[in-house]
Amino acid sequence: MTADLTLYTNPQSRGRIARWMLEETGAAYEAIVLDYGSTMIAPEYRAINPMMKVPAIVHMGQVVTETAAICAYLADAFPDAELAPLSHERAGYYRWLFFAAGPLEAAITNRAMGVTPTNEQQRMAGYGDFDRVVGVVDAAVAEHPYIAGERFTAADVYLGAQLMWFTQFGLIPKTDAIMTYIGRLRDRPAHRRATALDDGIADDD
């Protein structure tokens, strides 16, 4: 019998973010671990995500891809977990969720690949330059305990996981504000559970 909620993932991927989000919801789910060189490019998975990447979820027959979208979808699908924004949190929630998925990730990716936009290219790039993006994120996480205000939301799962990854590999400076924010999120029981699950899978490889 097919599970109502299935996560397609790999422990060395953004699937870790989706796993953390699922653990935050408390929902029952099945996790299917895919390999990059085989099952992730097989026809069966391409029918779910033609981009041949993880994560993806299938919930009640509905497919959701793109990690930020998965976080937002699960917050709405499981309202009892209280991970979706309240009315006064919506502006910050959507602003920083999409900032993390857009300008932040683009700036970090370009930096990691050695791409530095010229002054003329910065408007086309959509994020200006690397230092500007880092400064904006640093100021944002210093303003409140959580990115949308005083309460943890799905936007913190996505942004927080990205910042954990970027600081771990030296892709973004470990400022006091960023590391304090990350530390607050790492203490969450759902994050610890998700990390243990994915680390266990990775150790088995």
Rank of each mutant, 00 (worst) to 15 (best):
residue 118 T to S: 15
residue 126 G to W: 03
residue 95 R to P: 06
residue 140 A to F: 03
residue 142 A to I: 04
residue 126 G to H: 01
residue 98 F to I: 03
residue 124 M to G: 03
residue 108 I to N: 07
residue 133 V to L: 02
residue 121 Q to Y: 02
residue 127 Y to G: 04
residue 116 T to W: 00
residue 118 T to H: 12
residue 112 A to F: 11
residue 125 A to T: 06
residue 121 Q to T: 05
residue 94 Y to L: 07
residue 108 I to E: 04
residue 112 A to M: 15
residue 129 D to W: 02
residue 129 D to Q: 04
residue 120 E to V: 14
residue 95 R to I: 04
residue 96 W to M: 09
residue 95 R to G: 04
residue 144 H to L: 03
residue 105 E to D: 14
residue 116 T to M: 07
residue 127 Y to T: 06
residue 128 G to Y: 03
residue 121 Q to K: 10
residue 108 I to C: 08
residue 110 N to I: 02
residue 98 F to V: 02
residue 110 N to R: 14
residue 99 F to M: 11
residue 106 A to I: 01
residue 131 D to N: 08
residue 101 A to N: 10
residue 123 R to H: 14
residue 133 V to C: 05
residue 95 R to M: 13
residue 133 V to M: 08
residue 136 V to E: 05
residue 122 Q to I: 03
residue 122 Q to C: 07
residue 96 W to V: 06
residue 133 V to S: 05
residue 131 D to L: 00
residue 111 R to K: 15
residue 108 I to Y: 06
residue 102 G to D: 12
residue 106 A to D: 11
residue 124 M to S: 12
residue 136 V to T: 12
residue 116 T to A: 11
residue 139 A to P: 02
residue 110 N to A: 14
residue 139 A to R: 15
residue 140 A to G: 05
residue 113 M to F: 14
residue 135 G to A: 04
residue 127 Y to W: 07
residue 103 P to G: 05
residue 138 D to H: 08
residue 97 L to C: 01
residue 134 V to H: 01
residue 118 T to F: 13
residue 117 P to G: 11
residue 125 A to P: 01
residue 136 V to A: 13
residue 120 E to W: 08
residue 109 T to S: 13
residue 112 A to Y: 09
residue 109 T to I: 13
residue 117 P to Y: 12
residue 136 V to G: 00
residue 110 N to L: 12
residue 125 A to Q: 05
residue 97 L to S: 00
residue 98 F to Q: 08
residue 134 V to A: 08
residue 136 V to I: 14
residue 131 D to K: 07
residue 101 A to F: 02
residue 126 G to N: 03
residue 113 M to P: 01
residue 113 M to K: 14
residue 104 L to A: 11
residue 100 A to I: 03
residue 126 G to M: 04
residue 130 F to A: 09
residue 101 A to Y: 04
residue 142 A to N: 02
residue 135 G to R: 04
residue 110 N to W: 12
residue 96 W to E: 12
residue 126 G to V: 05
residue 138 D to F: 08
residue 110 N to M: 15
residue 129 D to K: 09
residue 118 T to N: 10
residue 104 L to I: 10
residue 103 P to D: 12
residue 132 R to T: 13
residue 99 F to Q: 12
residue 98 F to H: 15
residue 132 R to V: 00
